[in-house]
Write a protein that binds this DNA or RNA. Structure first.
Length: 263
DNA sequence: ATGGTAGGTTGCCTA
């Protein structure tokens, strides 16, 4: 039996966040780090710096300026595929197969703009369509899979600082929650966070930059997720949200998730 | 009720 520790983190620019990626490695030393919003095309990815941190194996799906995902690993990985669930060329997914055969899917779901109406705001429609296409893909999945990343939807009332205040705010609207619930049901996905930190416990992974001190009113949301296939449920060995990382120097607005498996 | 910040690459877009 071996232990596998995986981190998932929307870092909002991999290049500017190198010092706190180093901090994560020092504190947690995950076997695998899944990044979202790297904001670097592959040619600009800081390969040498990441290698020096002990992650010589990197699988990248980047683009200029926006989005971008990456998987950093201590051990070799085999890239499986990259999906374009929006069908617009944006770099929002990278998938690998681990040496033990398990699939690992790293996803950055579109944020969806400000107005929760697809006729007034095409970005909102693209977000819903993205989740819909993920659902179609998920229905036919057979292999044991870990899917994680920034899903940009907080599904439960206890996943946001105020359910009432956020009902019309993109990330917590009923139509988005319905879409995410449909995705979850399409494979009977296990929500790792809520299995090990059950509702209604407070659990947030993101706090807006637009507050001077995010701890004052604690207006957080749980936008980041780790889900596993039902067949992997018995392998769950730990889950934590590294909330203190929101107070590190030059922080991301998201904090790392740590999931551990006994395989 | 509004506007607030951050990052990348500009004189604005996305989050």
């Amino acid at each position: 039996m071996s232990r596998l520790k995986i981190a998932s983190w929307n870092i909002n620019s991999v290049r500017i966040r190198l010092p706190i990626i180093a901090q994560l490695v020092k504190d947690e030393s995950p076997d695998i780090i899944c990044l979202q919003e790297t904001k670097a095309q592959n040619a600009d990815f800081p390969l040498a710096a990441i290698q020096r941190l002990g992650y010589p194996h990197m699988i990248l799906n980047g683009q200029r300026m926006h989005h971008g995902v990456a998987i950093l690993s201590k051990q070799p990985l085999v890239e499986e595929r990259r999906f374009d669930w929006q069908d617009n060329g944006e770099a929002r997914h990278i998938g690998v197969r681990l040496p033990n055969g398990i699939l690992l899917e790293n996803v950055y779901v579109p944020a969806g703009g400000d107005i929760p109406d697809r006729t007034l705001n095409p970005k909102f429609g693209q977000k819903l369509d993205f989740v819909q296409r993920m659902t179609r893909w998920s229905e036919s999945l057979r292999d044991p899979t870990i899917i994680l990343g920034d899903f940009n939807i907080a599904p439960l009332e206890c996943d946001v600082w105020s359910h009432k205040a956020l009902l019309d705010v993109v990330s917590h609207t009923p139509i988005e929650v319905e879409a995410l619930t449909g995705l979850m049901q399409s494979h009977d996905w296990v929500d790792v966070a809520r299995t090990l930190v059950p509702a209604p416990q407070r659990l947030y992974t993101w706090w807006s930059y637009r507050n001077k001190d995010h701890t004052v009113n604690d207006r957080g949301r749980r936008l980041d997720h780790v889900w596993v296939s039902p067949a992997m449920k018995d392998t769950l060995a730990g889950f934590r949200v590294l909330e203190p990382a929101r107070s590190w120097e030059k922080p991301s607005d998201h904090v790392p998730l740590i999931a551990e498996f006994a395989l």
